[in-house]
Write a protein that binds this DNA or RNA. Structure first.
Lengths: 112, 112
DNA sequence: TTGTCTTATCGTAGATATACGATGATTGAC
DNA sequence: GTCAATCATCGTATATCTACGATAAGACAA
């Protein structure tokens, strides 16, 4: 029915990574955590718990998700853990999304 | 423990919408669908099914998700449905993500 | 050591996501 | 009308997500 090539393996890998990044951003609480970190620069877990209407364990899970996505990093500081945005990773994510949207300019559209 | 204000309601709404947008992008198959639409401009469902290693019903579900996110639109063309990227929505999404990353520049970082 | 504070992890329940085959609805050809 | 083609939806099984309380692990103070 069509003659589209079966898609290169590299792009599939990139899509996998980009999808993982999008999934990390796909929850309001995680966006709020990122905004809080951006505002305060550096946050101890308890400060984030105070901002969000969520239990401490839930916030910890979201922090873990953001850390596994590479968007934030946290280092132990005594009994606390200090979190912050990873500027390098953030720039990479920004570039990845910009690249995605850059390639999504359709040559034609059936929309209004 | 902290004095961070409880966050404005508008921003919560925006985060909700942005999270929904991110969730629409958070699957490799949907990214591939968008790329395919961008390359071909306009696609009938069957053409997308041929490109992806997924069943027709699964592809239809992904198309529905993208449509509900507003990123694509489809119009019936005889027994077929012709899909395409909605350029306006795409531009809005791009701006939303750019705005997000723009606000996420942290004043300080504990990362390397 | 003992106690307290902070955070991560465990266990779990419910919701959502993702996949498939089967079926239904609609169109166009005959 | 009948048949084939196309796509959406249904039903369902499995997996992942999200939330919570409870508990474990670690650091520091007394």
């Amino acid at each position: 029915m069509t003659d589209v090539p079966p898609l290169p393996a590299d792009e599939t890998l990139a899509d996998e990574a980009l999808a993982a990044l999008a999934r990390a951003l796909a929850h309001p609480a995680r966006l709020q955590i990122l905004r809080t970190l951006a505002t305060r620069g550096t946050c101890v877990c308890g400060q984030i718990v105070d901002v969000l209407p969520l239990a401490q364990s839930t916030v910890s899970q979201h922090l873990k998700a953001l850390r596994e996505a590479g968007l934030i990093c946290g280092e132990t500081d005594g009994p606390r853990t200090c979190y912050c945005i990873d500027p390098t990773a953030l720039a990479r994510a920004e570039a990845a999304f910009a690249g995605l949207f850059g390639t999504l300019t359709a040559p034609a559209s059936c929309c209004a």
